[in-house]
Computed example of a mutant assay.
Amino acid sequence: MSRRGQGPSGQPTIADVARHAGVAVSTVSYVLSGKRAISELTRNRVLASIRLLGYHPNAGARALASRRANVIALVLPLRSGIQVPVVMQFATAVVTSARRHDHDVLLLTSDEGPAGLHRIAAGALVDGVLVMDVELHDARVPLLRELGRPSVLIGLPADTAGLTCVDLDFHRAGQLCVEHLAGLGHRRVALLGAPSAVYDRGTGFAHRTRAGVVEAAARHGVDAVTLPCEENAADVHHRVATLLAQHPELSGLVVQNEAAVGPVQAALAALGRRVPDDVSVVAVCPDHVAEHANPRLTSVPVPAEEIGRQAVSLLMRKLHDEPAPQVTLLPPRLIVRDSTAAAPVDAGHVAARDDQAAAQ
């Protein structure tokens, strides 16, 4: 084979492909870009020349020639109430898993809403889409059902028909937390959940956890209070102080807000509540947060890496026209550490002790 016209690296160029196929360079370009209709005969001849010469176009052109971009989009939730470290765990897992399937990842932000999905679906930028921070009545869902691109939701909307979704079973996670506390004899507990903005948006994971807490509490005869919890220390302290003042017999806390875990523990200490002697604490949070807390937290871990891997795997199945389940919910597990213990024999003894100390 003649090497004339090859680039300085010794690799075949687009001009070599054109000569070999007996067409103009512009025709090869149109075959690669898809911007102009080319007869099937000519297209096949150009693609055959590409294979025979071992031509490696840039990623975008190569993808268009094969009708694939080898890129997937990940819609990230960078907005109020979202924990960026947790989001980055999901993103890292998606990027790592996608590379194992020879795909790159295009990052988008959820503030673009349906318009962002329209934009990437209109062109040949990506083969499929992963969507995070799914709301119960998400405005993007109707569009995802109609897109000409496979999609997977990391989260669960109220109506999953025609979709592919993967997430932790947050409803069951909420149940596990209450069941653990109930088994230790706690009869009055509270959920300090996600920030108000997360509930106001109707974000699925927060509402599902709350529903699980309420359901399990009713089943086990436990009085449960559920409240949103902001992230800064002053707000957390005020929330905990108000909660204990209004419910002096409260002896168990479930926390679903990674940023609030440390401030909750600090607030309890400042208010004279010992963990776990006076108040037991269970968290729904990443494992490293629970492990590094003082005391170490009994927790239901959020398996961001596993969910990310599963999401990519499901999307690849759809890209290869393989069947994929409509809903995949990872079963939660509760890890018992140092922050939970049997309920105080007299749940009101803490308030009485505080009143006595104040009188002195």
Rank of each mutant, 00 (worst) to 15 (best):
V327C: 10
L181T: 01
L136M: 10
H20Y: 12
L106M: 09
L315H: 00
H180L: 08
S97L: 00
V95M: 03
N58A: 09
S251V: 02
V302A: 04
A241S: 08
L253G: 01
G174P: 02
V300L: 04
L130S: 02
R309G: 00
R208Q: 09
A260Y: 11
G128C: 04
Y55P: 01
S313M: 10
V225W: 06
A269S: 14
V141Q: 06
D346M: 10
V178Y: 01
V87I: 15
D169R: 04
L41C: 14
A341E: 06
I82F: 11
G348E: 11
A206N: 05
T226P: 03
A182Y: 04
H349F: 15
G7N: 13
A352K: 08
D346K: 06
E215S: 07
A190I: 02
R188S: 11
A352M: 07
P157D: 08
V236N: 01
R317H: 07
G10P: 02
G272Y: 08
V255Y: 01
G174H: 03
A270Q: 10
V264L: 08
D338W: 06
I72F: 00
V240Q: 02
G308S: 06
A245Q: 14
V264W: 03
V222Y: 02
A217L: 05
P85S: 07
N294Q: 12
I335E: 08
L297G: 02
V126I: 10
E230C: 05
V284G: 05
V126A: 03
G308K: 00
E306A: 08
V166E: 00
G193Y: 02
L271S: 06
T340C: 03
D277R: 15
E291V: 12
S151N: 04
A48N: 12
S80F: 15
Q356I: 13
A359Q: 13
V198P: 00
P8D: 15
L250T: 06
G174V: 02
V336H: 09
R219M: 14
T242Y: 09
R353A: 12
G7F: 13
A241H: 12
V302Y: 03
A342Q: 15
R317S: 05
S66T: 13
D200G: 12
H56P: 11
V255G: 03
L319G: 01
V31L: 05
G162Y: 11
L329C: 08
